[in-house]
Amino acid sequence: MIPLIALVIGAVLGLVLQPSVPAFLAPYLPVAVVAALDAIFGGVRARLDGTFSDRVFLISFLTNVVLATFLVFLGDQLGVGSELSTAVVVVLGVRIFQNLAAVRRHLFQA
């Protein structure tokens, strides 16, 4: 529960502070956010499964974000940045759907 509240507080802070994204981060932030969302939904699913672990969550969060960002960065260097970021977003989107499906089964038994 507290992590969710923290999420909301962070969002409110973002609204209040109105941060501007630095240019060098701009291509990576969307992918990083999607990767983080994947980790969050994975965490929710694990929590409902009863297998949630702070350590695993932190590691999955950090690796998700770092790996996704790195992949896009690599893609940029290789000249396929936009394609690779699309690929990353698609893969993460699929995973989010799967996690959401598991959450749904837990919550509604359906």
């Binding site: 962070g10 941060p19 969050i40």
Partner: peptide, 26 residues
Amino acid sequence: RLTLRAAVVAVCGLLGFLLVAQVRAT
């Protein structure tokens, strides 16, 4: 354990912050 939990909370807050930042950027 407490440290890890705090990190989780911090990370969630960070995500909310970044989410809003990204939405605002687009």
